[in-house]
């Protein structure tokens, strides 16, 4: 358990000029006020999909507050991600109504299908899955959401069909002459 296993510093995230320009746009929108740090982080996540270390230390310098306070606030809220999520974010609702109608086996089915655990991203970077609490459409339990479209009354069988639809949409364009995939 040596301590270097702790490091999750994103060396791969480059602070290029247009990244900095985008960050400044967000900071100005919130009047460079450290009290709006949560809204700033939400815009940053919307822009870059996750909160990388170079971005957080850059914001800390700009707002002249401790980057550790920002990290402390960011890790408190479940909305913020620190790992690059998949292209399509799958969220399975674990609210009471969904739980009572078998959301757990639905989640297990998806994890078996994608070979990942909640909170992880598939190797090909296509899907990431997480369990959330109550998206507010309990009448259609159990509910699964992929990016913004909601799938109500889900069952294990439907999972494979829907995932295949997404996979096909992202499959690299094979030349039609060779005939479609399996």
């Amino acid at each position: 358990m040596t301590s270097d296993s702790l490091k999750i510093i994103h060396h791969d995230f480059k602070l290029s000029d247009n990244v900095i320009k985008k960050i400044h746009k967000i900071l100005v929108k919130h009047e460079n006020d450290p009290r709006n740090i949560i809204q700033i982080l939400q815009d940053i996540q919307a822009e870059f999909h996750y909160l990388a270390e170079p971005v957080i230390s850059f914001i800390a310098k700009e707002l002249a507050i401790s980057e550790h306070r920002i990290y402390g606030v960011a890790t408190f809220y479940s909305q913020f991600k620190f790992v690059k999520p998949g292209k399509h974010q799958i969220r399975v609702c674990m609210g009471t109504a969904c739980h009572v109608r078998g959301a757990q086996s639905l989640l297990d089915k998806i994890c078996r299908e994608l070979h990942i655990q909640p909170g992880e991203t598939t190797k090909d970077g296509l899907f990431s899955i997480e369990s959330v609490y109550c998206l507010g459409c309990c009448a259609l339990a159990p509910v699964m959401v992929i990016d913004d479209n909601v799938f109500g009354n889900m069952s294990a069988a439907k999972v494979t069909k829907i995932l295949r639809k997404y996979r096909r949409a992202n499959a690299p364009r094979k030349t039609p002459a060779k005939g479609g995939g399996k």
Binding site: I65, S66, H68, Y71, G72, T75, F76, Y77
Partner: peptide, 8 residues
């Protein structure tokens, strides 16, 4: 302000 509470 170095040591802070993280996670939840």
């Amino acid at each position: 302000h170095i040591l802070v509470f993280t996670k939840r």
